[in-house]
Design a protein around this nucleic acid. Structure first.
Length: 99
DNA sequence: CTCGTGACTTACG
DNA sequence: ACGTAAGCCACGA
């Protein structure tokens, strides 16, 4: 199992209505390659299978999506799952899924 | 092998 | 708060 596959694997583990951060993924994977995680998700060959939109920055910021500032779509998708976004940030106190 | 790039994080001014 | 710098690691050229 290579690095990218691990990332996808853990993304799939995120329950509906929850999100996680790059840092949390790095922690469970025992790596500090936060950047590499982002790179892997950018590739995201498992597009609908892996909910990469549930992965946000450590401070709750949305970050990017599909390589661009398509945060609008991302916000809407997250909102559909019951996640409220305030000032382009996610309330980690309520929605952060810890491994 | 080295280099550049990036959906990151932390620290500092 | 904001910008910059440094550290980090996978990936492709």
């Amino acid at each position: 199992m290579n690095f990218s596959e691990k990332v996808y694997h853990y993304c799939k583990k995120i329950p509906k209505g929850k999100v996680t951060t790059y840092k949390e993924i790095g922690k469970i994977m025992k790596t500090k390659a936060y950047r590499a995680i982002g790179t892997a998700l950018k590739n995201n060959p498992y597009a609908p299978e892996v909910p990469c939109h549930k992965v946000v920055r450590n401070n709750g910021d949305i970050g990017s999506y599909q390589g661009k500032f398509h945060n609008l779509k991302k916000s809407r998708l997250l909102g559909k799952e019951g996640i409220k976004i305030i000032n382009n940030k996610i309330d980690l106190e309520k929605y952060l899924h810890k491994f």
